[in-house]
């Protein structure tokens, strides 16, 4: 194989498990980045990190009950993540404490409970599985789950898009014209959790956030408005998935970190050469206009 592009794609042609991994990651690449775009615009980037930890105890309970079973761990993760997100959201709306503080409180409780549960039963290997995922061993049910999450996310985003944007820009105004602010906010938090659970299948809890946020942040260097940010972030995530998987196969690297590092490399590259606030653009400033 002398053709570098051919060798880049060869693993996907040759091996079924690589094609499955690619399909799963591409499904995640169209659903997680738009969520990440809204998170970064709302200055809630680190919220997804907190949420990814909050999922842990649920997955651990699922693991304790049913062993390494995908449905059990997914369901547990969903329940734990939604509980933390909705509780934090509800407490924020009922009290004067801000959402980040509430979320920090709930996710710390949840994370500690998760670590406790994992250590009660289960070995180091199980823990590694939790943390780094198993993208190279996606079975049919995992692919259906990722595809379903992706579909659900895009449909839900289409339904709540306008009030969600209004909630981000001017929550006071939305509250004055509509009662949808609360439900829309909670629906968005639920989408964050659902996508993290999906990412946790493919990449593990620690890295699920990577595919959500890195493409979204990188897209800020390329696009000016939402209509540009969302597709660009999806494209960056897809490129990161393909190249991360391919590199992980060729150099025998763990695939989850390889994908996230690929996304990280794209972020750094965007930061350098991106037309909107990239470093290179700052060095060679074009002359200003007359008016």
């Amino acid at each position: 194989m002398t053709d570098p592009f051919g060798s880049f794609l060869a693993p996907f042609v040759e091996f079924g498990f690589m094609r499955r991994a690619l399909a799963g990651c591409l499904a995640l690449s169209v659903s997680a980045p738009p969520i990440g775009v809204f998170l970064t615009l709302r200055r809630m980037s680190l919220m997804s990190d907190a949420m990814s930890h909050a999922i842990l105890p649920g997955a651990a309970v699922g693991f304790l009950v049913a062993g390494l079973s995908l449905p059990a761990m997914t369901l547990g993760g969903l329940v734990a993540g939604l509980a933390v997100a909705l509780l934090a959201g509800a407490v924020t709306r009922a009290t004067t404490i801000r959402e980040d503080a509430n979320l920090a409180a709930f996710y710390l409780i949840s994370l500690a409970a998760g670590v406790l549960l994992v250590s009660l039963r289960g070995s180091q290997i199980d823990l590694m599985h939790f943390l780094f995922g198993s993208v190279l061993a996606l079975d049919d049910s995992a692919l259906w789950l990722l595809g379903g999450i992706s579909t659900l996310t895009l449909l839900a985003l289409a339904v709540i898009y306008r009030p969600l944007v209004m909630e981000c820009v001017d929550p006071l105004f939305l509250r004055s014209v509509s009662r949808s602010g609360g439900p829309v906010h909670l629906a968005f938090l639920a989408l964050v959790v659902v996508n993290l659970v999906g990412g946790f299948q493919a990449l593990g809890t620690l890295l699920a956030v990577g595919l959500m946020l890195l493409p979204a942040v990188a897209a800020r260097f390329w696009a000016r408005d939402l209509a540009g940010l969302i597709p660009v972030s999806m494209l960056i995530a897809a490129i990161a998935s393909v190249s991360g998987l391919s590199l992980s196969y060729q150099y025998d690297l763990p695939s989850g970190p390889a994908i996230v590092l690929a996304a990280g490399a794209l972020y750094v590259a965007s930061m350098m050469v991106g037309p909107r606030g990239g470093l290179l653009r700052r060095l060679v400033r074009p002359r200003h206009l007359e008016a």
Binding site: V165, V169, D225, L226
Partner: peptide, 15 residues
């Protein structure tokens, strides 16, 4: 005092 996030990528038309 509005709570409008002026850094949000929104056009005047949309606002």
């Amino acid at each position: 005092v509005d709570e409008i996030d002026r850094s949000f990528p929104l056009t005047v038309m949309d606002l």
